[in-house]
């Protein structure tokens, strides 16, 4: 396990001197970070820390004030087809008149190209992706009638349809049931084992240690980044969350200490 991690030396994402500002107040300050390929990476930090902004900057949704970003050693524009971006579930209108299968098909629009129509093969491919997430039976269901967890599964299925090398997921576990969370993590692990890179903006500190390989701690600036065993420390968490470290975060911290203690006993 750890050997494979150290073997993966190529960078999926290289962020250099990135500063992003909406209006007068910068939301990201001079961020330098290297995200290795072939790992499941968590981006954590308090609300308003710039986690989502970092993802948006990577896919060109916000224009940085300074700095540059490379995806697999090239500007994003040249790597579009390699990247699947999954926005926050709340960012779209789920009353839009369409069904689950149709949303998954949107993942193929980039490949299909301008002016062309999706074919039967595209439908088949989209259906397979829904199947992978265990919701093929909901293909014809109106998206407004899906539960939060099902909607998130549809979003991930759409990303799978793109068949990318890099997945960028913005809070895929927000408001999602436990079964969906397990399904999604199972698929993310499969993707990693196939050599894909998965970057997740994450809120639940308790699951970071068990479920992620690499962690980026962010609070307006980069606090720390590295393999979970090295970077996800109580000290770094304290520096990231500061006085705002919530009860939940404390719980994560104690969990972590216990795990570390157990590791050292072995």
């Amino acid at each position: 396990m750890s050997q494979r991690r150290t073997a993966a030396t190529t960078a999926a994402i290289e962020v250099h001197d990135l500063t992003v500002s909406y209006g007068a107040k910068p939301v990201l300050w001079d961020v330098d970070v290297l995200i290795p390929a072939g790992q499941i990476v968590a981006i954590v930090g308090p609300n308003g820390a710039g986690k989502s902004t970092l993802l948006k900057a990577i896919v060109g949704l916000v224009r940085p004030l300074t700095g540059w970003i490379k995806v697999f050693d090239a500007p994003f524009e040249q790597r579009r087809a390699w990247v699947a971006y999954v926005p926050q579930r709340e960012s779209v209108d789920w009353d839009f008149p369409t069904d689950a299968l149709d949303v998954v098909m949107m993942g193929l629009y980039g490949q299909i190209g301008w002016f062309r129509r999706p074919s039967r093969e595209h439908r088949q491919r989209a259906l397979q992706c829904l199947e992978q997430l265990g919701i093929a039976h909901l293909a014809q269901r109106q998206i407004s009638q899906l539960s939060g967890g099902q909607q998130q599964r549809v979003f991930l299925a759409r990303a799978l349809a793109q068949n990318p090398k890099l997945y960028l997921l913005d809070e895929p576990f927000a408001g999602v049931d436990a079964a969906t969370e397990d399904t999604i993590f199972r698929i993310l692990r499969q993707l990693r084992d196939q050599g894909r890179t998965v970057v997740v903006v994450h809120h639940d500190l308790q699951t970071v240690a068990d479920r992620f390989d690499y962690v980026v701690l962010l609070n307006l600036r980069l606090i720390a980044a590295g393999p979970v065993e090295e970077a996800f420390t109580a000290e770094n968490l304290q520096r990231t969350y500061g006085g705002r470290l919530t009860a939940l975060a404390y719980a994560a911290e104690t969990l972590l200490r216990r795990d570390v203690a157990r590791e050292s006993q072995r």
Binding site: G60, R80, V83, Y85, M106, Y109, F115
Partner: peptide, 22 residues
């Protein structure tokens, strides 16, 4: 008719459409 799918995805999820180059 020509841009039906592009119009659909950009109305439903513009950020996703942008990331896909649509």
């Amino acid at each position: 008719t020509l841009l039906f799918k592009e119009l659909k995805v950009s109305a439903f999820d513009p950020e996703f459409a942008h990331a896909q180059g649509l």
